[in-house]
Design a protein around this nucleic acid. Structure first.
Length: 701
DNA sequence: ATGACCAATTGA
DNA sequence: CAATTGGTCATG
């Protein structure tokens, strides 16, 4: 455990050159200090040693270093506080992990340079969590802490945090919210009793999921514990915020999001870290919130790719929350209308239990779903369909729906122009006869000119000769215009991108939205139309079908139940298995099959996978130095697109960027991460060119 | 990263 | 033989 160098004889020193060198340097430094007159550092009386995690981006320095605490800083350099220290000849930031009586370090300790603030922003739980997350994702603790602890705001820090009022929890209402689910009541009672149930939740279509989450949080709260609720985006934060106010009243929770501004974010963070408030609602930035006495972590719609962090080491919110539930012995609730393969895997391994409603309950709550093809035959027979890109069935359903409320049209992608482009060079694809833009008129049809109707089956790019076409971009605005012409006099509203509507009222209107931007309708939509489903499926991503189903279920769940006239019209190919899963409202069955596929293809979550990317030579040498566990496979490296944000100044000189995939059985996942950390440590120490490592990256494709 | 140290290499 | 360069190690 400890070094044996403490009482070394001279003979041993000779056998341990590094110790001898250290000693020699030590003596020299002390001599120098004496001669120059060292600053008298007067160490603190109690626990004069601070164990500091320094903020340096190097993998091999990701460990605590001991510093001497001067008396002046004895009261401010508390565990969890920020400090500045001298490290390797420069001033760096750090966190005090602990204050201890004495150091294990043999040499002389440098004093802390200063205490930034006495606010303990890094709790022992979050310090532990960042170590776990760093290990899981083969990253460093400082990288994780950058995500976990928001930037300090001195003015805000001076303000006191208002404590939450006395809670009044209506447990009966909480139970009622979860009554549709088999063992739903048991789940709520366990939360209220201080237990830690773990559930994968398949929400009943049409359910007010925000209210259900708020009530689960309230039940946990009534046991004297805190709760942490994560949702994909801002719109959902607002919805959950409103639900919590309606369940508990104001002042019991805070919102923690990255885009609320530094002051507001730090204020909310402090309210949580000081224990004044113990319920947190937020986006992925909230996953590390230091909630006191954490009793429940919950994640809504865990398949949303907004949960995959874009910053090193690229942790996924689901993973962070589940690690927390494990470490802090909290309950966990993961779910949505869809079920992810990762959720299914939690059930399969027995880590969590299913929280689902009986089949009859689901059937009664779901709208009537119909699939209608936009086949050539149908389009030709139906001039209207030709002009509005809308089959007759869908048109009729919209018209009927408008009789009793707003109608939701989900359209795959953002943008205005509808045209195909070259997969390679992005040059817009043009008709050889008339230079008009090409589109895909229907599923499994060749590209067709929008102007002259000419079919282009053997298309090749005029610029670069490539034969691949990118999926067309069908704009929500364009769709809105065309629909507006088809239904004159009806209000058409759009919700997409940075102009997202959070809700619409019950008045008849056509709402065109892109996936994830669908507004909540007061009373539910009488009709929901899913347009151009083959476009979403035409993407080549690994998770395409899973992601598409998730988006469709989320939109379809906003329709009224069938018995109240709710209808969902899906424009697509009824032969698609994924559309059948939607038709039967069977997200669980779909996830089961998808997981089986992933297992047989050795893909996550059944296997653990990491990518190593960078310059070709760097990747090759990185792979060479990786000490891989048994059963590991290396795929590639293969050339990839250059890293975004780095303009290629000289494509000749630039080494080609490549990516390799390393795959191991799930059981060897921890070993793989350790091997990657080790490799990065050696590379950093030797100043070899950097490679980027991502463990279980989302959407390899 | 940055700096210290040591060994090998280069140059007059 | 001194000056220089490159690699290794440690950073409290």
């Amino acid at each position: 455990m400890t070094d044996n160098g403490h009482d070394d004889e001279a003979g041993q020193l000779a056998l341990m050159p590094q110790v001898a060198r250290a000693r020699a340097r030590e003596a020299k430094q002390q001599a120098a200090d004496r001669s120059k007159g060292p600053k008298p550092v007067d160490p603190a009386e109690v626990d004069p040693v601070a164990r500091v995690l320094v903020d340096v981006p190097l993998a091999h320095l990701d460990r605590p270093f001991d510093y001497l605490v001067p008396t002046k800083l004895a009261d401010s350099a508390v565990p969890g506080s920020r400090v500045k220290v001298r490290f390797a000849g420069q001033d760096v930031d750090g966190f005090v992990l602990a204050r201890v009586d004495r150091s294990e370090h043999e040499g002389r300790l440098a004093p802390l340079r200063r205490s930034v603030s006495s606010e303990p922003v890094l709790s022992p739980q979050i310090a532990g969590l960042s170590a776990t997350v760093a290990a899981r994702y083969a990253g460093t603790r400082s990288d994780v802490l950058r995500l976990a602890v928001p930037a300090r705001h001195a003015t805000v820090e001076k303000e006191p945090s208002a404590p939450a009022p006395q809670p009044h929890v209506d447990l009966a209402a909480a139970v009622a919210s979860w009554a549709p689910y088999a063992a739903g009541e048991e789940f709520v009672r366990k939360l209220a009793d201080g237990a830690a149930p773990r559930r994968v939740w398949s929400a009943v279509p049409g359910q007010d999921w925000a209210l259900a989450l708020a009530r689960a949080a309230a039940a946990t709260y009534s046991s004297g514990r805190g709760a942490l609720l994560c949702v994909p985006d801002h719109k959902d934060v607002a919805r959950l915020d409103a639900a919590l106010v309606s369940v508990l009243g104001p002042g019991h929770h805070v919102l923690l999001t990255a885009d609320s501004g530094p002051a507001a974010r730090y204020r909310a963070f402090l309210a949580v870290s000081r224990g004044a408030v113990r319920i947190v609602v937020g986006t992925r930035a909230a996953a590390f919130a230091p909630v006191h006495d954490l009793g429940l972590v919950a994640l809504w719609d865990d398949g949303d790719d907004l949960y995959a962090d874009q910053h090193a080491p690229y942790p996924h919110t689901r993973e962070v929350l589940l690690l927390r539930a494990h470490e802090e012995n909290a309950a966990a609730l993961v779910g949505g209308f869809a079920r992810t393969v990762e959720g299914e895997y939690l059930l399969r391994t027995g880590w969590a239990q299913e929280l689902a409603a009986p089949r009859e309950t689901v059937r009664a709550a779901a709208a009537r779903v119909a699939i209608t093809g936009a086949t050539d035959r149908e389009v030709e027979r139906d001039p209207f369909a030709r002009s509005a890109r809308l089959p007759r069935t869908a048109f009729d359903a919209i018209r009927d729906g408008l009789g009793s409320g707003p109608v939701l049209l989900q359209t795959p992608r953002l943008g205005y122009v509808t045209s195909l482009a070259c997969e390679q060079c992005r040059t817009p694809a043009r008709c050889r006869a008339c230079a008009g833009p090409l589109t895909v008129p229907a599923a499994h049809r060749p590209p067709t000119c929008r102007w002259c109707g000419q079919e282009e089956s053997g298309w090749a790019c005029a610029e670069c000769g490539a034969r691949g076409l990118r999926a067309p971009v069908l704009g929500d605005r364009r769709t809105a215009e065309e629909i507006g012409r088809a239904f004159p006099g009806v209000a058409v509203r759009t919700s997409s991108g940075d102009k997202v509507l959070s809700a619409v009222d019950a008045k008849p209107a056509i709402v065109v939205a892109t996936p994830g931007a669908e507004p909540v309708a007061d009373g539910g939509y009488p009709c929901v139309v899913l347009l151009d489903t083959w476009l979403m499926l035409s993407r080549t991503d690994l998770r395409t079908t899973e992601e598409s189903l998730r988006r469709w279920l989320n939109a379809a769940a906003m329709a009224r139940p069938a018995e109240k006239g709710g209808r969902v019209v899906v424009v697509g190919d009824s032969g698609e298995p994924v559309l059948q899963a939607l038709l039967r409202w069977d997200p669980a069955g779909f996830a089961r099959r998808e997981l089986a596929d992933r297992q047989s293809a050795h893909l996550p979550p059944a296997s653990r996978l990491a990518t190593v990317s960078g310059e070709a030579a760097a990747v090759a040498s990185a792979l060479q130095m990786l000490v891989l566990p048994d059963g590991a496979e290396v795929l590639g490296p293969v050339p990839v697109e250059p890293a975004p944000g780095r303009p290629v100044t000289d494509p000749e000189a630039e080494e080609a960027p490549v990516r390799a995939v390393v795959r191991v059985p799930r059981a060897a996942g921890a070993q793989l991460s350790r091997a990657l950390v080790e490799m990065q440590g050696v590379r950093d120490a030797k100043k070899l060119p950097a490679v980027r490592v991502q463990v279980d990256p989302i959407g390899l494709g």
